[in-house]
Design a protein around this nucleic acid. Structure first.
Length: 810
DNA sequence: ACCGCCGGGTGCC
DNA sequence: ACCGCCGGGTGCC
């Protein structure tokens, strides 16, 4: 009887029963095995077995229901025992002894994953059938087949087995047997899959429209799309609807994907994923949610009487815990300060630093507790974690993609938090893998997918194997819990964020006679070179050269000194190492345009400490050094796959750079474009001295040139370019956005690299000094295509060459 | 009858 | 379990 308490009777209430806790952990454990073995994707076959001992357990199963198989090596009656549990973790029975011996062998040696589906409705109370399918790595197939045969079981392969009389429809049979369709349709192509994946989060807005005003306590008026988000979030928190794929079947709750039924209502998801693009106001919306939707949909506190609500006798959870990366902690404090009316006394506690107050009563009595992922996981690894003791009303994960790795301590810590409502704020819900999404689903406790096994069997594997139904299910699931808008999203035909009407003016600047002559000289030279490449069919081989010529022409249009003095070089085959080096430095200079904000293909950020390879591609020195270090002798250029060596990296001679820099400023001269800009800025200032302007160029050196006349005319300006640290960038933006008198009116901006979204709503004028043209776009698109292999090479080649010929009028 | 047969008790691992 | 198995009761037809 003692032992029965341990192995029997499992599966009623999940939360506080130590037996079921062990059970769910056991199930979770098997899921993680699969995760560690991502190759367990090949189906070896299936066989029919029986589950016994049903009458000892409460778990019920339906026709077609998926069940999980859990080894019980500690079972006192049989160390080979294999337990059968339904989707909800309730034990159903055991695998019959002889079959259990076989499964134990296969499972313990990690030869295959074994999954169960119950093919018929259960008629009797003692035993039932189960179809076991075996999934694993190809190299283990033989061993598994042998094991099964040696114990006189028959492994069935292929869908046309002996049971088709029972299930007329082979396709349906497969579904019942395995819980997924084995490609009755041709599998989705990689491209289809990728597109579907990219579109997962698009168009998640239907049915969610409806606006809700924030309570008075929020002093910043919400934009329409923020009111929509608030409305959606309130609905998510308040409604009692079943999670997706669950149906109420009169007393039982039925899951349409796993075909399981449970007596207790599946826990509702009170929360979701707010995945709006950066800059759409996720923070403000969340603050509005905290204040607007307290208990029973009532506001948290009315403006006047809020301060006194230190209600220790109220057992209901009231505090919202916000977890964010350290870098945005201060942003939360600022925004709480900025958006909450000054006369509203919101108790906000910053749970951070060694002196933090760990008293759980204190923490529970706050309205908002702010902390970081690091603090959370540091606490969690200790003994009694205060944050895990408090019963929260709401937990908000800011930059929620941070917890996408389920093995990380902070992810584990986050899953263990005790809260009624759960929110994930993220701008990038999926980085590149479906697995990233699991953690988010698990955090939301989206039953039954918070257990890896069901996520893997029902969603992840079907989707990665190209099963259309799997993809549809994934889409439906994501849609239920996610709101995502991008800056280009539209609702009811209106743009999400309506900006003042943008007007674009192209001002053509006439070059002076002298400038024109220099430009024409360079152009003729460039055309000669490129037409030779075209004739030889070597455009692509000399692509860096070609781009450099084009960059150079654009530089001439800005300012003749942008490039600095260089020797013309084209066409001479390098003979000596010194000559080669010289040529590479010239190329480096050309590619970088001595100060264009170039992007490193390794880190995708602005190039720092630039070096050029012998194949003429430019990277950050640390980035490419790491590539070479890790690939050793086989190291290849990430862009062209040409061989590269550490000894052959050429860097820009520092003295020369500095010399050119000071040269540039000492012998400063103007240019037509500089004059045009200055006269516009001066005219603007005389009309309205509060208008702020952004001056954008990809050539940082051009920005340097522009600093001189700006200072001369007494303009206050700031500068932002790719070489600056994140911290410095934030400072500069802050300074520019400020509205104190004497704030800079002009920002010199060069930000080609890094995918850094910056919100520069302060500027009402933007001067694009050297608008990006098609070649750059072509180049980038090319990188994307290379990465995904979406376009055939010859197609790519022609379009690129044609582009260049058109540009050079060849 | 140191068998066969009958029918009640019983039953996961 | 409308089974199989076990073990006690029973014993020509």
């Amino acid at each position: 009887m003692q032992s029965r308490r341990w192995f029997g009777g499992a599966g009623l209430s999940f939360a506080d029963d130590p037996v079921t806790e062990t059970l769910s952990q056991a199930i979770r454990g098997t899921g993680e095995e699969l995760d560690r073995e991502p190759d367990a994707r090949v189906l070896f076959g299936s066989l029919r077995g029986s589950v016994v001992g049903l009458r000892y357990y409460t778990g019920v199963v339906n026709k077609g229901e998926m069940v999980s198989l859990v080894r019980q090596p500690q079972n006192p009656y049989d160390r080979n025992a294999v337990m059968v549990a339904n989707v909800y973790g309730s034990q159903v029975g055991h695998i019959k002894r002889e079959l259990a011996a076989l499964l134990a062998n296969i499972m313990d040696n990690n030869l295959a994953r074994v999954e169960g589906v119950v093919p018929f409705g259960v008629k009797n109370q003692f035993t039932m059938s189960v179809v076991l399918s075996f999934w694993g790595r190809e190299e283990n197939r033989d061993a598994v087949v042998r094991q099964i045969a040696s114990r006189s079981f028959k492994l069935q392969t292929g869908p046309t087995g002996t049971h088709t009389s029972v299930h007329q429809d082979i396709e349906n049979y497969d579904y019942l047997r395995l819980g997924c369709r084995i490609t009755p349709f041709p599998p989705l192509s990689l491209l289809q899959l990728k597109n579907a994946f990219d579109n997962l989060f698009e168009n998640l807005m239907e049915d969610k429209i409806g606006e809700r005003e924030a309570v008075e306590a929020v002093c910043t008026p919400l934009l329409p799309h923020q009111k929509q988000a608030l409305s959606w979030m309130c609905v998510c928190e308040n409604n009692a609807a079943l999670p997706p794929f669950w149906e109420d079947k009169g007393g039982l709750f039925y899951n349409t994907l796993t075909h399981s039924s449970v007596r207790e209502r599946p826990q509702r998801v009170r929360g979701g994923i707010l995945a709006d693009d950066m800059g759409l106001g996720k923070t403000l919306t969340t603050i509005a949610l905290i204040l607007s939707n307290f208990h029973h949909g009532k506001p948290l506190c009315e403006p006047v009487k809020a301060a006194s609500s230190q209600s220790t006798d109220d057992p209901a959870a009231r505090a919202t815990l916000i977890i964010c990366p350290l870098s945005v902690l201060s942003n939360w404090l600022d925004q709480l300060d900025q958006h909450v009316r000054a006369d509203v006394k919101l108790n906000v506690y910053l749970y951070y630093g060694s002196e933090r107050n760990r008293d759980t009563h204190f923490l529970s009595s706050q309205h908002v507790v702010l902390t970081t992922y690091n603090v959370l996981s540091a606490d969690y690894s200790g003994s009694a974690s205060p944050l895990h003791t408090v019963s929260w009303l709401r937990v908000v994960l800011d930059e929620g993609h941070i917890i996408r790795n389920p093995n990380a301590q902070q992810s584990k810590a986050v899953l263990k938090l005790n809260t009624q409502r759960r929110w994930i704020l993220t701008g990038t819900p999926i980085q590149n893998n479906l697995r990233d999404l699991w953690m988010l689903v698990a955090f939301l406790r989206l039953k039954p997918f918070d257990m890896r096994e069901w996520w893997n069997r029902v969603i992840q594997r079907p989707v990665t194997q190209g099963d259309k139904t799997g993809l549809q299910n994934l889409q439906a699931l994501v849609k239920c819990v996610t709101l995502r808008r991008t800056k280009t999203s539209r609702v009811c035909g209106r743009p999400l964020v309506s900006l003042p009407k943008r007007s674009v003016r192209i001002e053509e600047v006439e070059l002076t006679q002298k400038e024109r002559e220099e430009y024409e000289l360079a152009r003729t030279e460039g055309r000669t070179t490129i037409s030779r490449y075209v004739a030889e069919g070597t455009v692509l081989r000399n692509y860096a050269d070609v781009l450099a010529i084009l960059v150079r022409l654009r530089q001439f249009c800005c300012h003749p000194d942008l490039l600095g003095k260089t020797t013309t070089h084209t066409g001479v085959v390098a003979v000596t190492p010194a000559e080669l080096r010289e040529r590479l430095i010239v190329k480096l200079k050309l590619v970088l345009g001595t100060g264009s904000d170039e992007e490193c293909a390794v880190c995708l950020d602005s190039v720092r400490l630039p070096v050029i390879t012998h194949c003429a591609h430019v990277y950050c020195r640390p980035c490419i050094a790491e590539v070479i270090r890790s690939e050793q002798e086989q190291a290849r250029c990430p862009l062209c796959r040409g061989q590269i060596k550490a000894s052959e990296l050429v860097e820009f001679p520092l003295e020369e750079e500095e010399e050119e820099e000071s040269n540039l400023l000492e012998n400063w001269r103007s240019s037509s474009k500089v004059e045009a800009l200055m006269s516009s800025l001066l005219r603007l200032r005389s009309e309205d001295d509060s208008i702020r302007s952004l001056v954008v160029s990809q050539f940082t050196r051009f920005l340097t040139i522009l600093e001189i006349p700006l200072r001369e005319e007494g303009f206050k300006f700031v500068r932002l370019d790719g070489t600056m640290s994140q911290k410095r960038r934030a400072q500069v933006i802050q300074e520019f956005q400020g509205d104190a008198p004497g704030c800079p009116l002009i920002m010199l901006l060069s930000l080609k690299a890094g995918g850094v979204g910056i919100n520069l709503s302060a500027a009402s004028r933007v001067f694009l000094m050297d608008p990006q043209r098609t070649t750059v776009c072509v180049q980038k698109q090319d990188l994307v295509e290379k990465a995904f292999g979406t376009k055939n090479p010859s197609e790519r080649k022609t379009s690129r060459v044609d582009e260049i010929r058109a540009l050079m009028e060849l």
